[in-house]
Design a protein around this nucleic acid. Structure first.
Lengths: 105, 105
DNA sequence: CGAACTGTTGGATGTTCGTCATACCGTCAG
DNA sequence: CTGACGGTATGACGAACATCCAACAGTTCG
């Protein structure tokens, strides 16, 4: 069954500067932009076509989660990642929208 | 007289991730939040009460300018810094507002 | 069981970054 | 002119970071 795994910080304890630092990386920014559709995404999906190693992606996913941006659900051997959109909107109004709208170039 | 100094990048060539990286620092974030009132601020003002060295502030100001966030005007021996609010709003709608609203803690 | 699949963990490494200290430069006042 | 003021430039140093590699662990399936 699907069980919540990987502890996430309480949104009230998340500092804006930490969120910004988490997002201030090309790969992590694109992850957040992809996740901004509100739907959960599998970690192994083909969406993530960066040319980096498996463990590097693990590192980025963990950074995002520890910064309070995402939540991970483990189902069997597949991990699903999801943006904490509602919570983030409450704490940092307009931020995610601004990031998602952002032009890549 | 007041002359524009210190070249700034064209706003169209500024990448979101670079803006985020510039702002992903406690000191620079607070500078931007202070500058978000739209008014120019002198670099030597008492607003900047971080306990860091002079040259460190120069480094942060330069980082913000090179990232396309600010513009510097030199008047005599005092330098005035200003947020490129309108341009940033056009390129990254809602971003500055989201940063300025952001709770410090 | 054993093998493939999906990810994590623990180094190791090269780079970037924030900070300081010192020296330097243009500007204004006496 | 000479000194104080406002900033910049350069160099050094330690910490943080992105990346890779190899090894490991839980899950599913034959």
């Amino acid at each position: 069954m699907a069980s919540d795994d990987d502890p996430v910080p309480d949104i009230s304890g998340v500092a804006l500067v930490d969120v910004l630092r988490a997002v201030a990386d090309p790969i992590r920014l694109r992850i957040v932009q992809t996740l901004a559709d509100g739907r959960p995404h599998a970690k192994c999906g083909t969406h993530w076509n960066f040319g980096v190693h498996k463990s590097t992606m693990t590192h980025h996913f963990r950074t995002l989660r520890e910064a309070g941006l995402t939540r991970t659900t483990v189902t069997g051997r597949t991990h699903t990642i999801e943006l904490r959109r509602a919570e983030l909107e409450t704490r940092f109004p307009g931020l995610i929208d601004a990031l998602a709208t952002g032009d890549a170039a």
